[in-house]
């Protein structure tokens, strides 16, 4: 009887795979390709206007190439060579430091990453809880959502020192600052997502005399997952930004925020160190984003439509 049915019958082994191992390899490949292109454009710009042009060994005495133009923004002080930034990772962080800059930045990224992860989790849980409350109470939604929005207009640099006063000068303060930035997208997307089920799906649950709790777990949360994951991806990068910015005005040591301040002060003598730190910060954000994306792919492995990154 099944053969007579028109439509979408497929062999039972078929699972719509949104992205497989091949897809992941292609994504990483494309990312690396763009990185190479960016580096090439960067060096091309320096070859055109970066006076004086130095080679790998940094020798300015006998320049192998004279750029035709002299553009201030492209000189070694403002835009160090790609290879200078790259080799900076392997050189001592400061003149007498026993550790390479790379080792120090990895430590700093782990430190900041810990705060950011804690902030992401706290913000994610708090943001989800708010969305759940708002979806069940129009009154609370109307009353509180404006404050949720207003909370995001407060400059984090003004807030962070206050948090340190309340909580103390350690990484938990940083995590809270990070959570402050991460809960917002989760709440806003969560309200949409939890309200997204088809009214007939809610009617169906009503015919089962399902209590709100069951409706939440069996219909609202699963339906909201694409919305939540979109928010989690935003929150993942926001949590890293929040942690770095949270470290800066609070003087907390050991993280990327502190490293950025320090290498900013030493910019004249070693601009490539600040650039390397910026790259390390970006890499941390990408790792966070990628981790959420991987979890998303696992959660959605059986769903037809996955919202693309």
């Amino acid at each position: 009887m099944t053969t007579a049915v028109p439509g979408l019958i497929r062999p039972s082994s078929i699972r719509p795979r949104v992205i497989g191992v091949g897809g992941a390899v292609r994504s990483v490949g494309a990312f690396l390709l763009v990185l190479v292109v960016l580096a090439a454009v960067w060096e091309l710009a320096k070859a055109i206007g970066g006076v004086p042009w130095r080679d790998f060994l940094g020798s300015p005495i006998d320049p192998p190439w004279n750029p035709p133009l002299r553009i201030k923004q492209l000189n070694d002080q403002n835009l160090p060579h790609v290879w200078d930034v790259a080799t900076a990772f392997f050189q001592p962080a400061t003149r007498n430091s026993p550790h390479s800059l790379g080792a120090i930045l990895i430590d700093a990224a782990v430190f900041t990453g810990r705060s950011a992860f804690a902030g992401f989790v706290i913000g994610g849980i708090f943001g989800t809880a708010l969305a759940v409350i708002f979806v069940h109470s129009r009154l609370l939604e109307r009353a509180l959502v404006p404050y949720v929005i207003a909370s995001q207009t407060v400059p984090i640099v003004a807030l962070a020192p206050m948090v340190v006063l309340w909580i103390g000068r350690d990484w938990t303060s940083v995590a809270l600052v990070s959570a402050y930035l991460t809960f917002f997208p989760v709440t806003i997307a969560g309200i949409r997502g939890l309200a997204s089920p088809d009214p007939r799906a809610l009617d169906l649950m009503r015919t089962y005399a399902a209590d709100p709790w069951r409706v939440l777990w069996k219909v609202r949360f699963p339906a909201a997952m694409p919305y939540f994951f979109t928010a989690f991806k935003i929150a993942a990068t926001a949590s890293v930004v929040g942690a770095i910015v949270g470290e800066e005005p609070t003087g907390i040591r050991g993280g990327l925020g502190r490293a950025i301040l320090q290498f900013n002060e030493q910019y004249i003598t070693g601009p490539e160190k600040l650039w390397a730190t910026v790259l390390a910060s970006a890499a941390l954000g990408i790792v966070f984003f990628g981790a959420v994306r991987v979890v998303e792919l696992v959660v959605f492995r059986n769903r037809q439509a996955v919202i693309e990154a």
């Binding site: 088809d198 007939r200 799906a201 009617d203 169906l204 009503r206 015919t207 089962y208 005399a209 219909v219 699963p222 997952m225 059986n302 769903r303 037809q304 439509a305």
Partner: peptide, 20 residues
Amino acid sequence: RMDRDYGMVFQAPVLFDWRT
């Protein structure tokens, strides 16, 4: 309804995508 005395079928199947 609270006693689940009836079952309902709508015009659309209203099946949940994330469930088999």
